[in-house]
């Protein structure tokens, strides 16, 4: 199962990277959201698949028996929430970019920065 999940995580991340490389801002954003999902799965793989018991201490017991890795789950939980916050902040930025340029192409945003290609180079000084 570990090899299979590693494959799934790698495949998801590969698709996500392909989307991130797009110049379309929205597609890039969706790619980032997908990438964080893939990474969470990869983190989960790090925890190991030795058991499918949730890490909850049984009633009456004082310690955790055999179960899935609680530490990996704690880390992934915050990663999910923060990845979500990141996605939404980027969505706000894309929204503003759209309002400003009426386009979702990154090259149009970049064009806002550079007013003109470099002005014609001056002649080298004569001797």
């Amino acid at each position: 199962m570990t090899v299979f999940y590693a494959f799934c995580a790698a495949a998801i991340m590969a698709c996500a990277v392909h989307m991130v490389l797009s110049r379309n801002l929205m597609r890039s954003l969706l790619g980032l959201a997908l990438l964080s999902t893939g990474v969470n799965l990869a983190l989960f793989t790090a925890g190991g698949f030795s058991s499918d018991q949730p890490p909850i201490i049984a009633a009456g017991a004082k310690a955790l028996g055999v179960s899935a890795d609680p530490l990996a789950q704690a880390l992934i939980l915050t990663a999910i929430v923060i990845g979500f916050a990141l996605t939404v902040v980027l969505a706000a930025i894309v929204m503003r970019a759209w309002r400003a340029t009426r386009s979702v192409d990154a090259r149009d945003i970049d064009a806002l920065d550079q007013p003109e290609p470099a002005a014609a180079e001056a002649e080298p000084p004569h001797g």
Binding site: T2, V3, A6, F7, A9, A10, A11, M13, A14, C15, V17, H18, L21, S22, A42, T45, A46, G48, S50
Partner: peptide
């Protein structure tokens, strides 16, 4: 981009498999 993504995925796959194998409790 397809090649880049495929290379990335391959590297990640190999890395994850190796990491999971070395995993001790």
């Amino acid at each position: 981009d397809f090649l880049i993504a495929a290379a990335f995925g391959l590297v990640m796959f190999v890395a994850l498999v190796d990491m999971a194998a070395g995993h001790a409790s």
